[in-house]
Write a protein that binds this DNA or RNA. Sequence first.
DNA 1: TGCACGATCTCG
DNA 2: GAGATCGTGCAT
Length: 174
Amino acid sequence: MEKLNYNFYKRDAVTVAQELLGKTLVRVWDDASVSRYTITETEAYFGEEDQACHASKGRTKRTEIMYASGGHVYVYLIYGMYWLLNVVTGNEKHPEAVLIRGLDEVIGSGKVGRILKIDKSFYGEHLLYSPRIWIEDAPLETSFHALPRIGIDYAGEEWRNKAWRFTLHSHKGQ
DNA sequence: TGCACGATCTCG
DNA sequence: GAGATCGTGCAT
């Protein structure tokens, strides 16, 4: 299938998070071998007003890429040991991103980063131009669960309770 | 310049 | 239930 294009990523994070379910994440390794995974769990982070979004602290060196156009890669180190993979969505100057939480049977954002061997060097790459990571189209999945996001209890009630975590119906969420 | 903490996971 | 492990944001 074809790579997802700019029009796919430039929509809002909640829509993109839902529609990424079932899509194919492609990873090309250093030895040119290729792995393909089905995206099974995602989470949406939307704008500076979303207290759970890193961009709620404003534009900083870390959140800078979220202010770029959709399709860029946002990665960051959590707990000093796990690189989490995010896809920037929306238009320029409005920070939004989708966290990839599950691939096939591998559920957990930290585990996803590990099996994909994600590190700091992926920060700012673009899913339309990177030679080692992109996402390809697949039939739209319309059957999924919408659940609260994980690990963001510090956010205010309104944001803490948003059901912005999405899991493919055929897979179990955490 | 220092410090507390985090979009986590594994082991015991 | 605790430890691993470190970049970031904010206080000092």
